[in-house]
Amino acid sequence: MEHSPQIGDRLADKSAPPDDAMIRDWIGPEAFEHWTALRDWIEASYPGVFAPDWIYGGKKHGWSLRYKKSKAFCTFLPEYRAFSAVVVLGAAERQKAGAQRDKLSPRLMALYDEAETYHDGKWLKIGISSAEERQDVTELLALKRPRRAIA
């Protein structure tokens, strides 16, 4: 017997990557606004740099949208009635974050401080349900990779 989705459940049907309509239905219209705003910000800030690709992480982790060039930039996690982004900070990015502590939000720095450091960096999963939380993610991404000057 199938159970009803719970908040935070992932899209686990591996038959095909989800499209925008499926994402909007799964995460909800408000979260989808943040999804599209962050996606649009990445495309405008880093034109032609990333070709996002859907990756399937198995039944437990489901589908996620990865932005990667030579190194991972960020990953969007469509969760039932929620949207999160994962940002991995390597050693250089952790130094930058430490130097910018006073410019980053207290919420973001609390997430940063609580995140465990692994051999490949600190993995931050950031829930995005407001413009301020989305701004936190964009500031972190700008630490990872400076934005191109747009003429």
Rank of each mutant, 00 (worst) to 15 (best):
L108R: 08
M109E: 11
M109Q: 07
A110K: 12
A110Y: 11
A110F: 11
Y112N: 00
Y112G: 00
D113R: 10
D113G: 11
D113T: 12
D113Y: 06
D113N: 15
E114Q: 14
E114C: 06
A115I: 00
A115C: 09
A115K: 05
T117H: 06
Y118L: 13
Y118G: 04
H119R: 15
D120C: 09
D120L: 15
D120I: 09
G121Q: 03
G121S: 12
K122Y: 09
W123N: 01
W123L: 07
W123D: 01
L124H: 00
L124F: 12
L124S: 02
L124T: 01
K125P: 00
K125V: 10
K125D: 13
I126E: 02
I126D: 01
G127P: 06
G127A: 13
G127M: 08
I128F: 03
I128A: 05
I128Y: 06
I128R: 03
S130T: 15
A131G: 11
A131Q: 11
A131Y: 04
A131T: 11
E132G: 07
E132F: 01
E133L: 10
E133S: 13
E133D: 10
E133P: 04
R134M: 12
Q135C: 05
Q135R: 08
Q135M: 07
D136A: 08
V137L: 06
V137D: 06
L140Y: 04
L141H: 03
